[in-house]
C-alpha cells in the first residue's frame, strides 16, 4: 500500500507500537518516522495502534478536573486572543509559545501549585542571603579602602619629603660648603650613601678639578665579594667643582667593599682606568 509505488521500508508491528508511545530511542524514532512518510498502510496501522493506546489512557482512574479549571483556562484563552490581536504588546508581556503554529508549552496555569507558593519564599530567602553577603562584602571593601587610603597618604608624605631632599641636593644654585679645619686649602672630596639591598646610591662630590670636554669622572662600586668593579655612572663637575649622582642604575644585592672615582671617556668605561682620583671604604 504505497502511494509512491516504491518499496517502503518495512516497520515491524512491535516498532510501530513503541513509536506510537515514543518508547524508541531518538535515532529509531527518526527512522520509523521516515519510513512512515510514504507508507500509507503503515500510517493506517499506526492510527489503529494510537486508538488502542487511547483506550489504555482511559483505563486511568477517572478524576474530575480541579475546581475552577475552566475559569483559569478561559482567562488564558482570552489572554491568547489578546496576544494574537496585539502581538507586539503581547510579546513584551509573555514569552513565545508556539513552535511553528502547533507547539506546546507546559506553563504554570494554576494558582495553587505548590511551586507558586514555594518559589516566592525561596526567592525572598535567596535575596536576603545575597543582601547579607553583599553587606559583609561592602563592609570589608570599605575597611580595605580605608587601609589603602592611609597607605597612600603615608607614601605621598614620604614621596614629598624625598622629592624635597632630591631638589635640595640637585639644585644647581644651592650653596655647598665643605667644612674643614681652618687654614687648610680645600681638596676634592666625595660622599656616597649606598644601600646595597636596593642597589640605591647617592653621591655628592665637591672641589673637583675640571676635566677635558671628552672626559668625565666615573664612580665605581668595588664589590665585597671580590668581583670586578661596577660602573655607577659618569659625571662632570660644575664651575665650582661640584657634582652629584642620584640613584644611578645599579644591580641590587651587591654589598660594597669600597668606592672609587676615576677619569674616563665621557661615554663611560666598563673597567676603571688608573689613576684612582678618589677612593673610600
Amino acid at each position: 500500500m504505497n502511494e509512491t509505488g516504491s518499496n517502503p521500508a518495512p516497520i515491524s508491528p512491535e516498532d510501530l507500537a513503541l513509536y506510537a508511545i515514543q518508547a524508541l530511542p531518538g535515532d529509531e524514532m527518526a527512522a520509523v518516522s521516515a519510513a512512515l512518510r510514504d507508507n500509507t498502510q503503515a500510517q493506517q496501522d499506526l492510527a489503529r495502534v494510537q486508538g488502542d493506546f487511547a483506550l489504555l489512557a482511559l483505563s486511568a482512574d477517572q478524576q474530575p478536573a480541579p475546581a475552577g479549571a475552566f475559569d483559569r483556562l478561559r482567562a488564558r484563552m482570552r489572554e491568547n486572543d489578546q496576544t494574537a490581536a496585539n502581538p507586539v504588546a503581547a510579546s513584551a508581556a509573555r514569552t513565545p509559545v508556539q513552535r511553528a503554529d502547533m507547539a506546546f508549552e507546559i506553563a504554570p496555569a494554576r494558582r495553587r501549585s505548590k511551586w507558586t507558593i514555594i518559589t516566592p519564599w525561596a526567592i525572598a530567602a535567596s535575596l536576603a542571603i545575597a543582601c547579607s553577603i553583599l553587606g559583609y562584602r561592602v563592609s570589608s571593601m570599605n575597611d580595605e579602602l580605608d587601609g589603602s587610603s592611609r597607605l597612600v597618604s603615608n607614601l605621598a608624605a614620604k614621596a614629598s619629603h624625598a622629592q624635597q631632599v632630591l631638589e635640595v641636593l640637585n639644585a644647581p644654585d644651592a650653596q655647598r660648603v665643605t667644612l674643614t679645619a681652618t687654614k687648610i686649602p680645600p681638596v676634592p672630596t666625595a660622599h656616597t650613601v649606598y644601600l646595597a639591598e636596593r642597589g640605591a646610591l647617592v653621591m655628592e662630590a665637591s672641589h673637583l678639578k675640571p676635566v677635558p670636554a671628552d672626559k668625565a669622572y666615573e664612580l665605581w662600586v668595588i664589590p665585597s665579594s671580590g668581583g670586578a668593579p661596577l660602573p655607577a655612572g659618569t659625571f662632570r663637575p660644575n664651575s665650582e667643582g661640584y657634582a652629584s649622582l642620584v640613584l644611578p642604575r645599579l644591580p641590587s644585592g651587591v654589598p660594597a667593599k669600597a668606592f672609587g672615582i676615576t677619569i674616563e671617556n665621557v661615554a663611560g668605561a666598563t673597567t676603571p682606568t688608573l689613576p684612582i682620583i678618589l677612593s673610600g671604604e
Binding site: R72, I106, A109
Partner: peptide
Amino acid sequence: DSGQAEDVLQE
C-alpha cells in the same frame, strides 16, 4: 502531581 496534571490539562 495534581498541579502538573492541571498544567497539562490547560495546555
